[in-house]
Write a protein that binds this DNA or RNA. Structure first.
Lengths: 155, 155
DNA sequence: TCTATTTCATACTTTTTTGGTATGAAAGAT
DNA sequence: ATCTTTCATACCAAAAAAGTATGAAATAGA
């Protein structure tokens, strides 16, 4: 739910579009090829992005997709918010519903979920498509004052 | 994947156990009742926590569960890491696999996923069962220097 | 205007994950 | 002994995610 395969396909496709920004439309097939995305699935994905103006499409010969605005002003955060728009949870990326523990009155976990949600978007919102195109460490400036604990998944 | 219903049941059950810490075992049925968790499901959940020493069980008359150590030293982070231990993603809470975009060489998104993962556990790791018992705003001290953008899920 | 190309809209199928049940055995207290 | 409670494992159902199919509608260029 947080980051599904579809989410990742979407981001990859958008980055691919960003790469070619300003050089006319690029075909679904080409994006699918470049990013190893099942072409039919990508068709569905892109046509869902269009109505809200993320991308502009052109049909027919020499048609294809292109970004509607500069990759500099498109953030991962905005995209992910968009992708989880009609997904019932109260914290869009987490899977948590506010009324989950209604029975107990006001849920003791709520402040925590809220903080996590904010922390997540703190990162997503600072990541633009453009920044993703730049090789090397990008977008790290903001969190540099935080001490990261090196705790990994145990397995 | 990130936070499933089972995850939330687990946390609620642990908080319930924390409430009664030091006062002998408490029955599954009582926890289930207090936290509105399906009892059979909770049985499964708790018996999965036992082998790794999160809880101690006692069978038979006057049996039940209790925490194996103080709620002060049990963090949500540790619990969530435990719950997602054998779930193939490289960033345990996100659903992202490192080799997802192998084709493209080194994935442009990796640094971002890593930062998000760290940001999430920054919060989870500072939240102890004990802190969840305290009413009011708890655990907020660390993130206080961060400027939160008020961006919500659009819907 | 015809044709090849490409997106578009919608619906369907399959697979995977999640959520939850069932059953009966084992252990412990009185 | 017996009642209570956990324990281990297997099973089932529902929901979500992933992916496919079909044919229609534009568009460019010959």
């Amino acid at each position: 739910m947080l980051v599904t395969q579809k989410t990742q396909y979407t981001l990859r496709a958008m980055v691919e579009l960003a790469k070619h920004h300003g050089r006319g439309p690029i075909k679904i097939a080409a994006i699918a090829e470049a990013q190893s995305i099942p072409i039919r699935f990508l068709e569905v994905i892109l046509s869902q992005l269009k109505p809200s103006g993320w991308v502009v499409a052109k049909r027919g010969h020499r048609g294809g997709y292109q970004l509607s605005r500069s990759p500099r002003y498109i953030t991962v955060g905005d995209l992910i918010r968009f992708l989880s728009r009609d997904q019932g949870s109260d914290f869009c990326t987490l899977n948590v519903r506010r009324h989950a523990c209604d029975a107990i009155g006001d849920c003791a976990f709520l402040p925590m979920w809220k903080k996590v949600q904010e922390a997540i978007f703190q990162v997503f919102d600072m990541t633009t498509l453009e920044s993703l195109l730049e090789k090397g460490d990008h977008g790290g400036q903001v969190m540099d004052n935080v001490i990261y604990l090196d705790r990994r998944c145990s397995r």
